[in-house]
Design a protein around this nucleic acid. Structure first.
Lengths: 137, 137
DNA sequence: TAGTAAGTGCAATGGAAGTGCATTTGTTAT
DNA sequence: ATAACAAATGCACTTCCATTGCACTTACTA
């Protein structure tokens, strides 16, 4: 089992208390979070720090950004099976219309999408909306 | 050939000069537009009016909203083959990373997406990013 | 044609994203 | 150990888009 320090170091991210806390928070949260979520969880910390920390994590490919259509950017840890650095790693996201949470369905790859002649596909964003397992129960 | 008045009336939208102009603008634009695009086209009109006009069009299903991941909401006319009122009408959108325009690929339906047990899919948003036909030429 | 409902314009607010700069903290070399 | 440097953090501020309240105008309806 890797420690948080090891994870950060392996990605060339300098280890700080703040970063460890935020990483831990992301691990414990199983859904994608907004910047506000993080803000609420760390009220003592500055918004900018949280913002830049997430951006750092993103650059170093330990979190990926999700645009689930709510208009607010969400972030989730890149876990087992998520290779965000590879453009073609395209798992889909599920947004629950009831609890408003967004979940990475890492196992569910996006099928090949055909585009018309002349169009070149570089990237695909797919968000399924509906009711999640917890809410449909 | 339906006139603009007829289109609006058939959707129970009261006909005003402003609405006709905006509708005409949307018809002529073949790509999805932002509120700012409309604003620039109608500098004499108020932002709020344009905003609410688009919202009205959206409610009455003559326009649909597109979230192409640029962070700015775009709108496009629901044309032939687009049945936004039906949740399962799911054509995809293409966003060009070069010219920054977003196009409805009305003919391209989204394939059936499987979700895990317990999840209920109600809606799917799919945006393909890449280079459009005009830019790849 | 008067009355009412809807549409429009102006002003202001709110939320999220992003930036500049000063300060603090951490790393490295001496 | 500590000086010097680089990176991280906190504060203040800005910008941009979305949205709302209210007053005024326009269009339908009895």
């Amino acid at each position: 089992m890797e420690t948080i320090e090891q994870v950060l170091e392996s990605k060339n991210i300098r280890v700080t208390a703040m970063r460890m806390l935020i990483y831990k928070f992301l691990v414990e949260k199983e859904v994608a979070v907004t910047l506000s979520d993080i803000e609420n969880a760390f009220e003592k910390a500055d918004r900018t720090t949280l913002y830049r920390t997430i951006k750092t994590f993103e650059e170093k490919d330990i979190v990926h950004q999700i645009d689930d259509g709510t208009g607010i950017t969400k972030y989730a840890l890149c876990e087992k099976g998520c290779n965000c650095e590879i453009e073609t790693d395209l798992h889909l996201h599920f947004h629950c219309n009831n609890c408003n949470e967004t979940i990475c369905l890492t196992d569910h790859k996006i099928p090949q999408i055909k585009v018309p002649d002349g169009f070149v596909s570089e990237n695909v964003n797919l968000v399924v909306k509906g009711i999640c397992d917890k809410c449909s129960g």
